[in-house]
Write a protein that binds this DNA or RNA. Sequence first.
DNA 1: TTGACGGTAGACAAATCTGTCTACTAGACA
DNA 2: TGTCTAGTAGACAGATTTGTCTACCGTCAA
Lengths: 196, 196
Amino acid sequence: MAGHTADITDNGQESSARNRVLDTATKLFYAGGVHAIGVDRIIAEAGVAKATFYKYFPAKDELVRAYVQNQSRLGRAAIDRIGERPARATILAIFDLVADAAAQPGYRGCPFLNAAAEYPDPGHPVRQAIGEHRRWKHDLLRSLLAADGNPDPDITADILTVAGDGLLIASHLDKPANLRHLIRETVLQILGPSAG
Amino acid sequence: MAGHTADITDNGQESSARNRVLDTATKLFYAGGVHAIGVDRIIAEAGVAKATFYKYFPAKDELVRAYVQNQSRLGRAAIDRIGERPARATILAIFDLVADAAAQPGYRGCPFLNAAAEYPDPGHPVRQAIGEHRRWKHDLLRSLLAADGNPDPDITADILTVAGDGLLIASHLDKPANLRHLIRETVLQILGPSAG
DNA sequence: TTGACGGTAGACAAATCTGTCTACTAGACA
DNA sequence: TGTCTAGTAGACAGATTTGTCTACCGTCAA
């Protein structure tokens, strides 16, 4: 969910120029915000011709949508890297990713929340891409909660989502003293006593 | 904390033109985002001359800072309107404000979180104004928790802040079915059994 | 009556934004 | 050899951005 600043795009056999654009956009949009970064800057730093840029991304907003989807892919990859664990341990590991991301140098909070703040229209493709990622994560949490034997996975997934977003905000804006402790405290309180 | 879209500025005996600018900016910035709204638009809708605008706000960022401070004032006023109640009831009422705000037509989430997303530099005056508001609210929650007999008001205030931000995000991006229920559920779980 | 003050109206500059278009280059392949 | 494809380089248009500056108006007070 959080920002994975400098990873590679690496989605199969896509064009090299396209990948360079998307990687550069991912880095710049995350660091500077979507509206504040112009396509000229991306084109220059990606070392690509303007015609090539507009060949792959006919409008800036389509690049922004691809950026959000790329962040979604990076977030899912980070969760995949956790590997097989019991449901409860997986949930805790997912939330630990927030602390991992927050410890990275260029951390600037959640790329999805930041992007959503710049797109007021909920029907905009960018907002829809954000919504897709959020639904995916919510569903993942719900199924993990069910596997953990949670009595009401639906509402608990809602609460966990609230906690996750709040922790991402806090880790960015407030930088609390002991973030990992705060995360544990929050999540364990929501999960309740272990069903073991 | 949430957006109070159409209230009046009304801060003492300030200039009328200045108030018109700040009110218009508050409405437009909240609805459309800070970078997406140009000063020309604000000047036109406020019905003010450009020279007057730049007399009161020598740069756009100063207007943005004033906008954040205005939202802070509106948020504090909404909390003041709750009146005298026991500490725990006050906390619950503060969180109910999220549901109230979310029910309003032009609701677009938390103005502070939205604005912070557009200002990457933590040292920027706009970010500092946001930080001031967040510290104020955190301290308010902490003292209410202490009055409620909470055993560890510091960490609980952290958790309540996390929950508040998460609820503001959820109420905006996810629009959960029963927001008021989710708020109660979340807050009561954090507050624990009543100390009565 | 004079002048300060708050404000209006709008031209203007300089930069920056997105997006289009032309002309050229290098490699792959038939 | 000829052609298709992917890409480069960069001029250009048109709109929009922030910010400055000039000229003017009305009111109130000394």
